[in-house]
Each structure stands twice: as structure tokens, then as C-alpha cells.
């Protein structure tokens, strides 16, 4: 069985009398240590997939297995635990706590997880050992996103989920962030899933899942992922 697998997952919202389908019959698989990109235009159902995969929302039908656990069947408390220990989340707008220093933002995650990495070590890894005691507002966007990644990695998650990690960044900074994510995947064997609308990123991924109209349009395995440096958009 694959590390992550979606089987016939559907998600429907009831808005008054109308039922809106956000995901319909979504099925795909991602192997451990892969760098996967879920790509689609806005409204294609990317966020819904992300929410369900991240344990932030439940699906209406089907099953979602992560490392052998069907998270579609978890209670809200178990979901919290799942988020706590298994998922590292990287946000589009970084979502750092403004009032905490860089180090403290990482500590915010490590102090609640069982087998956390040393915050300072993680920060050194993302190249921010010099800025550890700065507040987020004193950092550039790219640096903030690196803190966000460090915070996600520090928990030693099974899965790194990134929601438009480059969405709020300029071209060059975006690239360095993607490089960092790719390196993390390659060097540490971390399973990384990036959600984006940007088709240009796809060549660097091991697996590309294209969503359209709440459905999976196709799943493509990229046997020879390119290096981040060589892709342009």
C-alpha cells in the first residue's frame, strides 16, 4: 500500500438547499519520500484536498490513508493528534506568530510534539541561525517562509504539506524556497506535498496530480525530476 492514498474521496457542502461538491471521486497515491505537486486552477478543489489531507476537514465519502491509518475515520481528537505528530504545514502567508521570535515560533511547535528536533538545529538547517532572535516582522518574506518550514520540519512529521508556498513571494525567493523543499525531500527522505496553481513547478516533482472541476484529471509520474534551478516561470 502507498504511503498516502485517496480512494474515491468526495466532499460535499450543504449551503441551504444547494449542495456544492468540492471533491468528487478523488483517487490518487503518493509514495513515501516523494515530492508531489497537486496542481490545478483556482476552484479546482486543491484546498479541499489539502484540508482533508491535513486533518483540518473530514471527507463526506471514500477513504484517506496516511501511513496505514485511515484518517477519514478519526475522531476530532485523533485528528488533532494526527496534525500534531504526523503533519508539518507550510502556509502561503507563513502564519508566524508575530509576537514570538523566530526561535520561539519554532518552539511553539516543538514543545507540543513527542520527538521534536532541536529548534536551533532546524533553524541552522534552513540557514537562519543568525536571525534566531529576530521577530518575524524584521524578516523578509522568504526568510519568514523558511521559518515556517523550519517550524513544520521541527516536529519530524511524516508529511510536509505546503499550501502555495511561493504564492506570496517573488520569483527568486520562491525558487530558493522550492529548493529548500526539494532538498529536504531528497536529503532527508521527507514526503513533501506542494499545492499550487503554478504549472511551471511541476517538472521538479516526482509525481504530479492535476485537479480540475473537483476531480482528478490525471496523475503523472515524473521519472526524471529537474532541478529547481533549471525551471523558470
Amino acid at each position: 500500500m502507498s504511503f498516502v492514498s485517496f480512494r474515491n474521496v468526495g466532499k460535499h457542502y450543504k449551503m441551504g438547499e444547494v449542495t456544492i461538491t468540492a471533491s468528487e471521486n478523488v483517487s490518487f497515491e503518493i509514495e513515501k519520500g516523494e515530492f508531489a505537486v497537486i496542481v490545478g486552477a483556482s476552484g479546482a478543489g486543491k484546498t479541499t484536498v489539502l484540508n482533508m489531507l491535513g486533518g483540518m476537514d473530514t471527507c463526506s465519502e471514500g477513504s484517506i490513508t496516511v501511513d496505514g491509518t485511515d484518517i477519514a475515520k478519526l475522531t476530532s481528537k485523533q485528528l488533532t493528534e494526527y496534525r500534531r505528530h504526523d503533519i508539518g504545514f507550510v502556509f502561503q502567508f507563513y502564519n508566524l506568530v508575530n509576537n514570538l521570535t523566530v526561535l520561539e515560533n519554532v518552539e511553539l511547535a516543538t514543545q507540543i510534539s513527542r520527538d521534536a528536533m532541536d529548534p536551533q538545529e532546524v533553524l541552522a538547517k534552513v540557514g537562519l541561525q543568525e536571525r534566531m532572535n529576530n521577530f518575524p516582522s524584521q524578516l523578509s518574506g522568504g526568510e519568514q517562509q523558511r521559518v515556517s518550514i523550519a517550524r513544520a520540519l521541527a516536529k519530524r512529521p511524516k508529511l510536509l504539506l505546503c499550501d502555495e508556498p511561493t504564492g506570496a513571494l517573488d520569483y527568486n525567493t520562491g525558487k530558493t524556497i522550492l529548493k529548500l523543499l526539494q532538498d529536504t525531500c531528497r536529503n532527508d527522505g521527507m514526503t513533501v506535498i506542494v499545492i499550487t496553481h503554478n504549472q511551471a513547478i511541476t517538472p521538479m516533482a516526482d509525481r504530479i496530480i492535476t485537479l480540475k472541476n473537483s476531480k482528478v484529471e490525471n496523475v503523472r509520474i515524473n521519472e526524471n525530476p529537474t532541478d529547481v534551478d533549471t525551471i523558470e516561470w
Binding site: G54, T80, Y82, F89, N95, V97, L108, I112
Partner: peptide, 16 residues
């Protein structure tokens, strides 16, 4: 709200 939602995503229990 955003900060609190982030905490939840990070896996804070309701009580926490």
C-alpha cells in the same frame, strides 16, 4: 483568529 487557527493546524488540542 488567524493565530488561533494556526495553532490548531499545528495540532494544539482544544484545551491547549
Amino acid at each position: 483568529v488567524r493565530e488561533i487557527a494556526t495553532l490548531k493546524v499545528l495540532g494544539f488540542y482544544d484545551g491547549e
